[in-house]
Amino acid sequence: MPGRKMSDGIQERIKRLILDRRLAPGAALPTETDLMALLGVSRNSVREALKALQAMGIVEIRHGFGTYVGPMSLAPLVEGLSFRTVVGHYQGRDSLLELLELREAVETGLVARVVGRIPEEDLALLAGLVDRMRAEAEKEDVHAETDRAFHLALYRALGNDLLSELLDAFWDAFHRVRTDLAERHQDPRVTWRQHHEILDAVRSGDAAGAEDAVRRHFDDIRRRLATAARSHH
């Protein structure tokens, strides 16, 4: 474990360097040689630490060009959540339901807060997305990206970038895993109607109604997951 502790220590020092120099995403980091001199460690130690930081999205290694501050995205979280859910499923746990309940807890806790705060342009965007869902439902398939765009636009008025990224990460992980583990899909007309109900409550200033509409949406997904799980046994 000494090697692991040393690598962790180098990672922390590189992160501290990024903070101390106020390096923004996309900014170039010192070269490997410069990092070796700054940190007093070997080239292999620097490379090992950089690879670990790249896996976390903290740095980006562009071979032939250098190393840069990474985008700080939540992509590693999505990968971890997705794989953990699949592993749990094959161990006999209701891990997809657990992931759904995580999304539900966040969204039902937030939707009442956006009521009365969504600007007209975002309400118009949400209405356009609901109209698109209706058109897609008539062709028997509400596209996943339309659903994703609706949920992102709904909470954008909160002005919290981290929250938006986290909601998107939960959505991405859930839908990525559901494609593999749950074959039963929702009636697209139900999908459209439920999102229409959420928008109607938000637009009319009905915070309690908006929360109820979101909860009904998740309750329906939960029932379908339970039905799909029984059909596999």
Rank of each mutant, 00 (worst) to 15 (best):
A49V: 05
A28H: 05
K51N: 14
S45I: 03
V86L: 10
G92P: 01
V106H: 14
F83D: 08
S95L: 02
Y68V: 02
T67Y: 04
G80A: 15
A75F: 00
R47V: 01
E60R: 15
L38R: 14
Y90S: 09
P30W: 05
L39P: 07
V41F: 10
E60M: 08
M36V: 04
I61V: 13
R103Q: 12
Y68Q: 02
P71W: 00
I58P: 00
M72N: 09
Y90V: 04
G64R: 03
Q91H: 05
S82E: 12
G70N: 04
E107S: 10
L53Y: 06
E98V: 07
R84I: 05
E98W: 06
T31S: 15
A28V: 12
G70T: 06
L100G: 01
E107V: 04
S45C: 01
E98M: 04
E32K: 15
R93T: 04
E107M: 02
A37N: 09
L110S: 10
E101L: 08
T31E: 11
R93S: 08
V41G: 05
V41T: 14
E60T: 11
D34P: 05
P71C: 00
L29D: 10
L39H: 09
A105H: 06
V46F: 12
M56A: 15
H89V: 01
V78W: 03
H89I: 00
P71G: 03
P76D: 07
A52L: 12
T108E: 12
L81T: 11
S82A: 15
R103S: 03
S73I: 00
V86H: 05
L97G: 07
V87A: 11
G66W: 07
E32H: 12
G66F: 04
G80R: 13
V106I: 13
L35D: 06
E79L: 10
S82V: 06
E60Y: 03
G57E: 09
A49N: 11
E104R: 15
L38A: 13
M36Y: 02
Q91R: 11
M72E: 04
E32S: 13
E60V: 06
L110R: 11
V69E: 07
R93A: 13
A37H: 10
H89K: 05
T85C: 08
L99W: 06
E60I: 01
T33M: 07
V86N: 08
D34Y: 06
D94K: 12
T85Q: 11
A52Y: 07
M36I: 07
H63S: 01
